[in-house]
Design a protein around this nucleic acid. Structure first.
Length: 473
DNA sequence: ATGTAC
């Protein structure tokens, strides 16, 4: 594999073998995965072999190894030219994403004296960890299917939120084309008892303070101001999304040969978008995505209730965005308008200012990009920029550099909590082991990731947020 | 990511 440094923020993997397009990695040398133990760059090259892929197989600055596709990968296929959709290009946690709430009323100094009580209440009232439990259980199978069709919109219709929330949700709260019938009974069983829960792994709910604003005008439009409190929620579609991915990977793995498709890695199982298996997956994926959207809406409502009880103040939704999804979008390809299936796995959509899919208030500044760091480091709010490469996409987080196993070997959960609390960050975990696996040292430097994101022209900074308290999944 | 396993 030949890697060429095009600029200090962009590397190219030369086309070779079965690759249909080159690989393009938006990373500085320091942020490139180190080939030993991390096969992310090999995965970028593997993705470049997919039928119908256009332009390049892209990787964001936070790229690291994933299942088949790298996490931090973006790949678009031409639907009209036999382009494929691959569940591995979305990931197991379908529509995993980030939601940011902002309180215009609450400054850090007002929260500080009540922080321990607020964190205790958030800890008690946020279902998390593996297994069942959620803030709201659908009455029956039929109501779960309404969640799969309506996403955050259905949650709001049921009284869990306000209409304005939906203006600040990607897709206004629900992805179109959801086909609950393509979600297996097994996936539905797993999902019915987990709606409104964080899950585990890198999922969290964090109380943050706006430490710095880079663009006052954009911050004002997004509804952010320095010194005030935010709550960031990172979670996905739990067992329902996971089961949906597994079900459709299996179907596609079996169907590939009969479609005449061969891929260098079984985990890249795929089918043409315009085929029964492709359509079935996209319908199931959209349904699971709406479960994820409803999940974040319900958790946000729980946050509002906890604050109303413990530290009265209101929270407005800044934005809710997925970073694990495939979308059918129109883009210019070699001067032609084409319908593409854009896979973003651990990558955030980052629409530029003026894009027709943005609600009016946001059209002026571009789509918010929510980029969480780690428990002990900053998170960022960015916005999309004109002329962005990679089909208007940006990084989604800091990006792992250490395996969960290695992270847990490096520090104990109790010790990590003590360290964070000494720095004024309240911690409410789910398990000591899970906490240790998420130690900030297991991740890339989020400030460097954001710097490269901006230099590479993927998005630009609006605000930097610092952690005050974290509820870990 | 995940009732960390078909």
């Amino acid at each position: 594999m030949r890697l060429v440094e095009e600029t200090p923020w962009r590397h190219r993997i030369e086309r070779e073998g079965a690759m249909r397009v080159p690989g393009v990695v938006f990373a500085s040398r320091a942020l490139l995965p180190d080939g030993s133990g991390d096969h992310a760059l090999r995965q970028v090259a593997n993705v470049a072999t997919l039928p119908g892929i256009v332009a390049a197989s892209y990787a964001m600055p936070d790229v690291h190894e994933g299942y088949g596709f790298p996490i931090g990968g973006v790949a678009a296929t031409d639907v009209g030219a036999g382009g494929v959709v691959s569940p591995g290009g979305v990931g197991f946690d379908i529509s995993c994403g980030v939601r940011l709430l902002f309180s215009p009323d609450l400054a850090l100094e007002e929260l500080r004296p009540r922080l321990a009580r607020v964190m205790d209440a958030l800890g008690r009232q946020t279902p998390r960890g593996p297994g069942p439990g959620g803030v709201w259980r659908p009455r029956d199978r039929a109501e779960l299917e309404r969640v799969l069709l309506g996403g955050a919109r259905y949650a709001v219709e049921q009284g869990h939120g306000v209409a304005r929330d939906l203006e600040r949700c990607e897709d206004r709260g629900a992805v179109g084309g959801a086909a609950p019938a393509q979600v297996s009974p097994h996936a539905l069983e797993r999902g019915i008892g987990q709606l409104g829960s964080l899950g585990s792994g890198n999922h969290f709910l964090e109380v943050q303070v706006v430490e710095r604003v880079y663009d006052e005008h954009a911050a004002r439009i997004l509804g952010l101001a320095a010194g005030r409190i935010c709550v960031m929620i990172h979670c996905g579609s739990r067992g329902l999304g996971h089961q949906t991915c597994a079900d459709h990977v299996r179907v596609m793995d079996r169907a590939m040969a009969s479609c005449g498709i061969s891929v260098p890695d079984r985990m890249l199982a795929c089918a043409p978008v315009d085929s029964p298996a492709g359509r079935d997956y996209l319908g199931a994926m959209s349904a699971a995505a709406n479960y994820g959207r409803a999940n974040r809406q319900l958790l946000a409502e729980r946050v509002r209730r906890v604050f109303a009880e413990e530290c009265p103040c209101g929270f407005d939704l800044v934005y809710d965005v997925s970073h694990n999804l495939a979308k059918l979008e129109e883009h210019d390809v070699d001067g032609d308008r084409r319908l593409l299936c854009v896979h973003r796995k651990g990558a955030t959509r980052a629409l530029p200012p003026g894009h027709p899919d943005l609600p009016a208030p946001l059209a002026e500044v571009g789509q918010p990009v929510l980029l969480p760091g780690t428990m002990g480091t900053a998170s960022y709010v960015l916005v999309g920029v004109p002329g962005s490469p990679a089909f208007s996409s940006a990084a989604h987080g800091a990006g792992r550099v250490q395996s969960r196993h290695a992270a847990a070997r490096s520090i104990g959960g109790r010790q990590l909590r003590t360290q964070l609390e000494a720095r004024g960050i309240a911690v409410r975990g789910a398990s000591w082991r899970g906490l240790a696996e998420e130690t900030p040292t297991a991740y890339k430097d989020v400030d460097a990731v954001v710097e490269v994101t901006e230099r590479a022209g993927l998005a630009r900074k609006v605000a930097r947020l610092l952690p005050v308290g974290v509820v870990k999944g």
